[in-house]
């Protein structure tokens, strides 16, 4: 399916949040003046009564959402990953996670996908920061269709949730009828020699690496770990038991993201080995998206090379 047109996952969010808003009048969008970029335009145009824009005031946006949620609303606070996870971080901790309120944080511009914007807008820390907040669920869909389905799952499941989308267009992995469950990994390919666990925009790299490895006689399992918290521990344990070797791939700092979460499980099992592919704990720069990934070794070739030597 990777021959299909590439499309940013923020587009999937924009489509689905508008559909959800029509179905449930308690679903609100709280924008902070980057709604156009985060694709809330359709919601805003079609559902003005459910649309709030608090201006360039992220901290306040999180607090307003918390107050709305105490009154039974389901607010989606919409911004960029770097602002939603860091500028709002303490408000999310104090006023959303601690009171366990039904606020959804929907953020575009995850990882290095705002490639041309440079390091200030690329966000490599968000999933790590937010997965350490009790009560928070942390999700990154792999493509447009996964984004739509996981946004719907999030809207229909109580609790604080972080949803991370891409600014730039990414390959399509799933058909429109694919089903997703929060906290359950999707196995895209089975294998017995090595497991490649990826999420978000790197899932396509994992699939392509597995195809290359197959041609070389190496059988790779591929998991889309769209939810890094709660992590699908059973799926990780099965990778350890069945393949022994795991490569994690993420468009996020190798510290405290998917790779770290997987390592926590594997270390406590006392067997298995993990190699982490991801952002090498360094800030990015304005550059093409694929170049930024390559600067960090987030490439099909590197995944294949690691698999061959693991």
């Amino acid at each position: 399916m990777s021959e299909l047109k590439k499309i940013a996952t923020r587009e999937g969010f924009g489509e689905e949040i508008a559909a959800l808003g029509h179905e449930n009048p308690d679903i609100l969008v709280v924008d902070v003046d980057i709604g156009k970029s985060c694709k809330t335009g359709k919601f805003r145009a079609e559902l003005p009564e459910q649309y709030i824009n608090v201006g360039i005031a992220e901290q306040n946006g999180a607090g307003v959402a918390a107050g709305l949620a105490t009154c039974g609303k389901i607010p989606f606070v919409v911004t960029y990953a770097v602002f939603g996870s860091l500028r709002m971080a303490e408000m999310i901790r104090q006023e959303v996670c601690y009171p366990d309120l039904n606020v959804k944080l929907a953020c575009s511009h995850g990882g290095v996908t705002p490639a041309n914007d440079g390091a200030s807008h690329q966000c490599i820390e968000d999933m790590g920061v937010l997965r350490t907040f009790p009560n928070m669920t942390v999700i990154m869909p792999a493509d447009y269709n996964a984004a739509k389905k996981l946004v719907r799952e999030a809207a229909n499941t109580y609790g604080p949730m972080y949803l991370r989308f891409t600014r730039d267009a990414v390959a399509q992995v799933y058909g429109p009828d694919e089903q997703f469950t929060i906290g359950k990994a999707k196995q895209l390919r089975d294998g017995k020699d090595v497991s490649i666990i990826a999420n978000g925009d790197t899932v396509i790299l994992a699939i392509e690496a597995a195809e290359t490895l197959a041609a070389k006689g190496i059988s790779a399992r591929v998991l889309d770990m769209h939810t890094i918290k709660p992590l699908d521990v059973e799926a990780v344990a099965a990778c350890v038991n069945d393949t022994g070797r795991i490569i994690t791939v993420e468009d996020h700092n190798i510290l405290n993201g998917l790779g770290s979460a997987v390592c926590e499980v594997v270390a406590e099992m006392g067997k298995g080995i993990v190699k982490r592919v991801g952002i090498q704990d360094q800030f990015g720069q304005s550059a093409p998206y694929e170049r930024l990934l390559a600067m960090n070794g987030i490439t099909v070739e590197n995944i294949v090379s690691i698999a061959e030597t693991l």
Partner: peptide
């Protein structure tokens, strides 16, 4: 942080 929360409640 409380005033923003109060604003959310009043808005609801």
């Amino acid at each position: 942080q409380g005033l923003a929360c109060g604003v959310g409640m009043a808005l609801a």
